[in-house]
Design a protein around this nucleic acid. Structure first.
Lengths: 351, 351
DNA sequence: CTGAAAGCGCTTACAG
DNA sequence: CTGAAAGCGCTTACAG
């Protein structure tokens, strides 16, 4: 990957006999019209004689003409690009979110530009790419976004919506799960099913949603008159999840119920429990978050907090739409309701 | 999602008091230089006095100037965009591939534009988006690409590489797994461990790689003097995988060994087998393909054919680089070697 | 090293 | 309905 000189930065023209693009002028010449006419022929609802349009369309087809989105974007200062600052795809939830978002954007004629947060400095500069792209909007689902960067975007009139976190900055909208409520629901179920040593297991690096889930859970446990342990992963991959779970579950004061920041973590806990011979749910209860497809697998039957990805995407689209219509509108945070899906990793509440 | 009028297509200007962008001219004025000078200041290795550059950089910082990638792309006819035509992210392998590709592209200063194949007509038109974007290259990992579309891209000088399939069209490169060899390896293991009724289970809609895997497998089984069953999923989601597996495994002539087109399918087969009380691997052997992280989970311990995603990405980058350097070079197909990773779903070869 | 000019491929008022 | 002109924000020869 070190010698991709050409692709990376070398002067293409030195090497490349790339065909020159067929432009609006070529079509105009072919059709015998001005090139404004060609532009109109490709603009919905422009005033142009049907016959002229037909002639132009024929010429365009003959020449394989395709309007340049770059040029159009430049002149309209609207690129039809939406920048998505994203993180690792190791958790299926993130991949499904991206897929849903890309689909929704396609519905309104926009496409997603991927900016992997990991390749940018952890100072919010990933988001600045959206500015460089003249993106119509940005969605941030990973990485850091500094107040300074956010401010810059707002100032430039770039609508940005944060997924999974809230930033205290005018003009930056957010959509997040009712995380604390999800944590509370998990805690309630543990308490009602007689769990005595509940614990929360969060991400290696605490995130906004992670913290809210943990807080909601621990607060509710405390309200129930118990105290919750609070743990954190040793690392981000499946192996680290498993090892952390092993450690926690084999400690002297091992919990008998674990609420995990994500389903992926919860599945690691289930596997560790099985390796240790802990029966689920009699000796250990487990609850996840997100309700990814794997949670429903027979192998796991994971009780989890359902976080409907389509709702998230719908809200993002609506926030974006609203802000485009009214750029100065107050920042708003949309909370997506979440609900327990009870499967096999928690005990029955028949008491 | 039906009323996103503003975001979708309405005239922004009617609503939007978007700040006008700060341009090269603003910086030039602020720094007291021509705007060619500003351009140079932002061009690596351009001839400009250090002091002038410093002054310009200061002015740029003061104004929060950021070069427009759109404008730059237009004039250089190089957008630094790479279009990825992608499919569903339901299979973790696809998400990991995308992540790896995005990372590699970032290394060379390019970003990925997502085009979900599903939202375009099944005639290869998704790929045409790459042309409209003035993309520097396109990678296709899903959907149909017609010869006609491919031809158009080649003609326009757009490098395209196909992932997971080969197209008989000059100028279109490919990277694919040694699928048939993978199938052969799976078959050999089944035969050497005494399996008597081997079967292949492919995707609902046959794909290029799918077919190669099945062919390689069935041919090798035949060479071993047996005949393989050949099945196909009833649908694309986890539920359909599970149901299809149930059906196949409870048939009168049920197989005692199943090679699956992907790990995801294989996991469904494992779950169906367990539901039916079939012991793995004594009563049923299972082999997958890809070696996704889930395959290594203790819950599955899936024997599989490892298809290293990083190798795939590396080859794609090299093919792209080569074609950019030499646009007319013959199309080439890179075959990525694959290898069995033996875990717990196949019997020991101690006989 | 620096500036003025032309041009990338379009759209958008403005006249006609 | 149609065309000529200006301009979107840059880069790139070309002179100086």
């Amino acid at each position: 990957m070190n010698d991709l000189k050409t692709f990376a930065k070398t002067d293409h023209n030195r090497y490349q006999a790339r065909m020159k693009r067929v432009t609006i002028k070529d079509v105009a010449r072919e059709a015998g019209v001005s090139y404004s006419a060609v532009s109109r022929a490709f603009t919905e609802g422009a005033s142009i004689a049907p016959e002229t349009r037909a002639r132009i369309e024929a010429a365009a087809k003959a020449l394989n003409y395709r309007p340049s989105l770059l040029a159009r974007g430049l002149v309209q200062s609207r690129s039809n690009i939406v920048t998505l600052v994203c993180g690792s795809m190791a958790d299926p939830f993130d991949a499904l979110f991206m897929e849903a978002l890309a689909g929704a954007m396609a519905q309104v004629g926009k496409r997603l530009m991927l900016v992997p947060a990991s390749v940018y400095a952890d100072d919010g500069s990933a988001l600045l790419q959206a500015l460089d792209d003249q993106a119509d909007a940005a969605v941030v689902s990973a990485g850091t976004v500094s107040l300074e960067t956010a401010e810059l975007c707002v100032h430039a009139g770039l609508p940005v919506v944060l997924a999974g976190r809230v930033l205290d900055q005018d003009g930056i909208d957010s959509v997040v799960a009712e995380n604390a409520d999800g944590g509370r629901q998990a805690a309630d179920l543990f308490l009602r099913t007689g769990c005595l040593r509940p614990a929360y297991l969060g991400q290696a690096r605490e995130t906004f949603s992670d913290r809210e889930r943990g807080d909601g859970f621990c607060d509710a446990v405390r309200s129930g008159g118990q105290v919750a342990q609070r743990h954190r992963l040793d690392g981000a991959d499946d192996a680290a999840i498993y090892q952390t779970a092993l450690r926690i579950l084999s400690a002297p004061d091992a919990p008998d119920a674990v609420f995990c920041a994500t389903d992926r973590i919860a599945i690691g806990v289930i596997e560790a429990a099985r390796a240790l011979g802990l029966a689920i749910p009699s000796a250990l209860s487990v609850i996840g978050f997100n309700n990814i497809p794997a949670a429903a697998r027979r192998s796991f039957g994971l009780t989890t907090v359902d976080y409907p990805v389509d709702r998230v995407v719908t809200e993002i689209m609506m926030l974006l739409d609203r802000r485009l219509g009214e750029p100065a509108v107050r920042a708003s945070t949309r909370r997506i309701p979440v609900g327990l899906v009870v499967r096999d990793t928690t005990r029955r509440v028949d008491a």
